[in-house]
Design a protein around this nucleic acid. Sequence first.
DNA 1: GTCGTAGTTCGATGATGACCGTACTACGGA
DNA 2: TCCGTAGTACGGTCATCATCGAACTACGAC
Lengths: 107, 107
Amino acid sequence: MAKSVTLPPLVYPERDEITVEGVLRALADPVRLAIVRQLAASGHELSCGALTVSVTKSTITHHLGILRQAGVVAGRQEGTTRFNSLRRKDLDALFPGLLDGVLAAPR
Amino acid sequence: MAKSVTLPPLVYPERDEITVEGVLRALADPVRLAIVRQLAASGHELSCGALTVSVTKSTITHHLGILRQAGVVAGRQEGTTRFNSLRRKDLDALFPGLLDGVLAAPR
DNA sequence: GTCGTAGTTCGATGATGACCGTACTACGGA
DNA sequence: TCCGTAGTACGGTCATCATCGAACTACGAC
């Protein structure tokens, strides 16, 4: 039979569709900022479950959706787990310094 | 009688009281982003009336208050007009690259 | 003093969005 | 085949906030 493509297609904005305002809105939330910080600190991709935030699963899904739509994170499906990673290259190319400035901040 | 100190004291956060999240929240609004862009583009300080945005005066006041509390802009009173300027030095010192990354963005 | 201009303050309203619980789908192991 | 785990989808609630108009203060010019 055909290759099983189960979960929703997970569509992201192309690099040139990413807007500063979208990125800023995405980052302007403590939970999402924590997620981005963890992704950046770990250096590699993390599953939803590997994120340590103080909200429920469904809320994490909500926030990851916003980060994805804004072009901040990408997701890769593997079995039942979805691995999320920072779109560092795209962000650095579009808004050089922005992400580093945010991540370098003490708080 | 005593020296007339009329308008509210206009208190800002000290440099070390500025948080990334506050700055991001402040910048994550189209009107406020437009204000910041105009301040940056003009290079000098601008009065409220010199800002070209598509909202009423009272809404401009509201947005400038948020930008001020976040530590993004400073204000100087002169007669009845209030001049607003970007706190570039403070922001660059705290979050190097952030502001430049935002301002360099095409949109 | 009187008027016009600059900006603030105060409600009020309407929209957005953060959050949760529950129900659901999909995969993998026993 | 049955169960546990990973994550999504949906519906609802509650808080936040962008926006406005109207009333107000302060200053400068005449």
